[in-house]
C-alpha cells in the first residue's frame, strides 16, 4: 500500500469503487460550498481497503443556517435525492435541527446513501475540529481522527465495528498516536476492549 503520510493529511491513489465515487461526488459539493464536514463511518475502513460493502456513509456537518442549507439542498438536488423527505423546510427544521439524520442517494436509488447530521455532542465537534484530510486520487475529503475512529468503533461494539477497528489499527498501528488512543479509550470506558481486540 502506497500512502503519503503527513501530520494532517494522507494522500493516495486507488482504483475507485462505486462507494468511493459516491463519496467523491457528494463531498465535492460540500467542498465547493465550503461546508465543514467529517466522515465518521465504516466507510473510513473501506476507503483504506477493508473489503466489505456498506449501504450508508455517516457524515457530520457543521451547523449551518437555513439559507445555507437551502443552497446546499438546491445543488444536491441536481445529482441526489433526499430519501427521507422531499421538502427543504422539513429536512432542515424537522430533521437536522432536531438531531435526526437526512439520507441522500443518487437519483432513483436508495443505496448507497449519505447519512448526514449536524454535530451535536462534544465528540462530534472534536471530530470536526480535528478532522484529517485525505487526498484520494487528487480529491480532497475529510475523515475523523483515526484514533477516535478506532476507539469509537470499539465503543459501538458490534462484530462489524470491532472488525473495522481491528483493520484500521492493524493498518495504521505505526502512525497512530498511542497516547491519544488510550485517552479516548479511557473517556469511552473501553480499556478492556482495547486490550482484548487490539493487541
Amino acid at each position: 500500500m502506497e500512502l503519503n503520510f503527513t501530520k494532517d493529511c494522507i494522500s493516495f491513489e486507488k482504483e475507485l469503487n462505486q462507494l468511493d465515487q459516491f463519496v467523491i461526488d457528494f463531498t465535492t459539493i460540500l467542498n465547493a460550498l465550503d461546508i465543514k464536514y467529517v466522515i465518521i463511518s465504516g466507510y473510513v475502513a473501506i476507503l483504506f481497503g477493508r473489503n466489505r460493502a456498506s449501504e450508508d456513509i455517516d457524515l457530520f456537518i457543521e451547523k449551518i443556517d437555513f439559507s445555507k442549507f437551502q443552497t446546499l439542498w438546491n445543488v444536491l438536488e441536481k445529482q441526489f435525492d433526499c430519501i427521507i423527505t422531499n421538502t427543504v423546510d422539513e429536512a432542515y427544521h424537522q430533521y437536522l435541527k432536531e438531531d435526526f439524520a437526512l439520507r441522500f442517494a443518487r437519483k432513483g436509488e436508495v443505496i448507497p446513501n449519505m447519512e448526514i447530521k449536524f454535530c451535536k455532542d462534544p465528540l462530534d465537534f472534536l471530530s470536526l475540529q480535528e478532522k484529517k484530510q485525505v487526498v484520494l486520487n487528487k480529491h480532497s475529503l475529510f475523515i475523523s481522527p483515526l484514533e477516535l475512529q478506532v476507539s469509537f468503533k470499539l465503543f459501538l461494539g458490534t462484530q462489524k465495528d470491532i472488525e473495522d477497528a481491528r483493520y484500521l489499527f492493524a493498518l495504521f498501528k505505526d502512525h497512530l498516536n498511542q497516547s491519544l488512543l488510550h485517552s479516548f479509550s479511557r473517556k469511552l470506558k473501553i480499556e478492556e476492549e482495547l486490550k482484548r481486540y487490539l493487541p
Binding site: K14, E15, L16, Q18, L19, I46
Partner: peptide, 8 residues
C-alpha cells in the same frame, strides 16, 4: 483496490 472494487 482492484480486488476491493470487484467485491464492492
Amino acid at each position: 483496490s482492484k480486488q476491493q472494487k470487484t467485491i464492492i
